[in-house]
Structure formats: C-alpha cells, structure tokens
Amino acid sequence: MAKDIQGTEKHSPRYHNIDTWPAEDMLESLWASQLRAISCIQQSIPEISASAEAIAERLSHGGRLFYIGAGSSGHLAIQDCVEINPTYGWPLDKLIPLIAGGKDALLAPMGGAEDDERISVKSLKAHAISAQDVIIAVAASGSTPYTLAAVKHARSQGSLVISVANNRHAPIYDHAHHSIFLDSGSEVIAGSTRMAAGTAQKAALNMLSTLTMTKLGHVHDGLMVSMVINNEKLENRGAAIIQEITGSDSETAKKCLNEADKNIKLAVLLAMNHPKAEAEKALADNQGHLRQAMEKLKVTY
C-alpha cells in the first residue's frame, strides 16, 4: 500500500542522467509525460460524471462549493474555484477557496501549513460547512494532513466530499463520496507534482466544474449564457451570444441586453419578443435553465 501512496514521488530509472541529455530529448520526455497525464483522465470519466451529477444536485438546493488543497494542488483548486464566477455566474458567496497557508501561499511556499490539521478544520468551522455544501479536495499524494483533516471534518458534517488524487490508495478517498483517481504516474522530475500530476488535476477539475455548471443551466448550446459581463469586450460577446441563439440583429441584441441588466438568458427571451415579467418568471420557475424556460414560453405563447 505504501508503494502506491508514494507513486508520485517515485524516481523513474528511465530519467537517469536527464540533466545531461540534449535539450530536445529532455523536452520530448516532458511532452510525453504531459500526454500521459491527459490520457489517464479517460478512465476517470465515469467518476467525474457521477461527481458532477452529485455536486449539481447539492448546489441546486442552496449549497456552497468549497475547494481545498495545499501547495501545487491547492493552487490548481483555487484557480478552478475563482474562474467559476466570471465564466458561469455562480455566486461568489457560494464559492469558498481554501489553501494551506491562506492568501500568502498563493505567492510564496508555506510548506509547514500543509502539515497542520487544525488549520483546515478551523477554516471549515468558521464557514460553518454543513450537509448542504460540497467540498472538492485536491492532493497529489492524497495524504496531505491539511487536506485529509478537511475531508474528515466535512464528511462528519454531512457535506458531499469529492476527493481528487494521483495515487490509487490515497487516504482522502476513505472519506469521500466520490473519488477521482488520476493515474499520472511518476514524474520526469521526481516529486515535482506540479508537472504530470498537476496537468491531470487541472484538466479533471476543468471537466468537473464545466459539467457541473452545465447541469445547473449555465451553458446553452455550448455558449456561456450566465457569464458575468463587466467590460465592453464581454458586452459584445454577450450580444453575439444573443444573436446566435435568437437570430436577432446586433442592435436588438444590445438593446435587450441592456434592458435585461446584462443578464444574457433574460435578454435572449426578450429578443424572442417575450414580455419581461413573463420571461423572468419562466427562468425563475425553471431554476435559470434557459432551454426549459424557452420551452415553457413556447407552450404559453
């Protein structure tokens, strides 16, 4: 068991004397390692799918989404977390990123913090994590004390626990409802899990959050219909989305977007000539799912 747990730390003999290799040979090995990291995700697709379904169910009933990790894994967890609001409009007060060492750890190494089990539990208690909530825990080894203590506490509070790790027998799986194992193997640079393990984590988290937000109605025909519009570029993109869905002209799309206070879904329904009050009700009645709202209004009118 210990052999598997330390899989990401193994020193592969194939990379012996790599520091003496020609530059292009070394890069070929790094490239091949990255390809393997991406390809290993395929075997985890069923678990990623089940995880997204479970997360969406919990969040659709008012839950919050916690992300937690330490070191490189923590950085990747935080990155996925902070991109959900601008991309899918998920409320900031329902997104809680936690990393060992806090904000300081985003710019400087805070190695000691990842060994302190009390810090993560204290943070989760401060946020009053509950059975409504979801926590996504990311750890290459799956045994980081900070992260392991967090999943134990979250599970004890009834929270939905999703554990993402790169070792088959990761301890954080023991406390998870869903375990996403990413078999990225040993690193070219032994123990540097920001490389292959990190690449697999980044891609898997992208897939997990994208499917979750799609299930929650924030994607329509591959378009970001819930994105936050806060500059001219995004306003133009929002108008283009409205045009693509409705077939309206640019002037109408922009007019409807302004009337909808930059809410793309509402603007789409306005561009389809539905009264604003009816459009707002249709979206509210269908938990913000544009396609369902369109179907309801199609039947009504």
Rank of each mutant, 00 (worst) to 15 (best):
M1H: 14
K3G: 08
I5Y: 05
H11I: 14
S12I: 00
S12N: 15
P13Y: 03
Y15Q: 10
N17E: 14
I18K: 10
P22L: 08
E24D: 14
D25W: 00
S29L: 09
W31F: 14
A32R: 12
S33P: 00
Q34C: 05
L35Q: 14
C40P: 09
Q43C: 02
I45C: 02
A50S: 15
A52R: 03
A52Q: 06
E53W: 00
A54M: 12
R58V: 01
R64Y: 04
R64S: 10
F66P: 05
Y67G: 07
A70F: 08
G71M: 09
H75T: 03
I78T: 13
C81D: 01
I84A: 10
I84C: 12
T87K: 08
G89T: 10
L92E: 12
D93A: 02
P97L: 04
I99W: 03
A100S: 09
K103P: 09
K103E: 15
A105Q: 07
M110Y: 08
E117Q: 15
E117C: 11
V121W: 01
K122Y: 09
S123V: 01
S123N: 10
K125V: 01
H127K: 04
D133R: 07
A139R: 03
A150W: 02
V151P: 04
K152W: 01
S156M: 05
A165H: 03
Y173M: 01
Y173E: 03
H175F: 14
A176P: 06
S179V: 03
S179E: 07
L182T: 09
D183H: 10
S186P: 15
V188R: 06
T193M: 08
T193H: 06
R194S: 05
R194M: 06
A196Q: 13
G198V: 06
G198Y: 02
L208D: 06
T212M: 07
T214K: 08
K215N: 13
H218M: 13
V219K: 01
L223E: 10
L223F: 05
L223T: 07
V225N: 04
I229Y: 09
N231V: 07
K233P: 11
N236M: 11
A239P: 04
A240M: 13
I242E: 07
I245S: 06
G247C: 03
S250C: 07
E251M: 11
K254N: 11
L257N: 08
K262D: 10
I264E: 07
L266A: 06
V268L: 08
L269I: 11
M272R: 15
N273L: 02
P275T: 03
A277D: 14
E278N: 15
K281L: 12
A284Q: 13
D285S: 13
N286F: 01
H289N: 14
E295Q: 12
K296M: 15
L297N: 09
K298Q: 15
V299A: 14
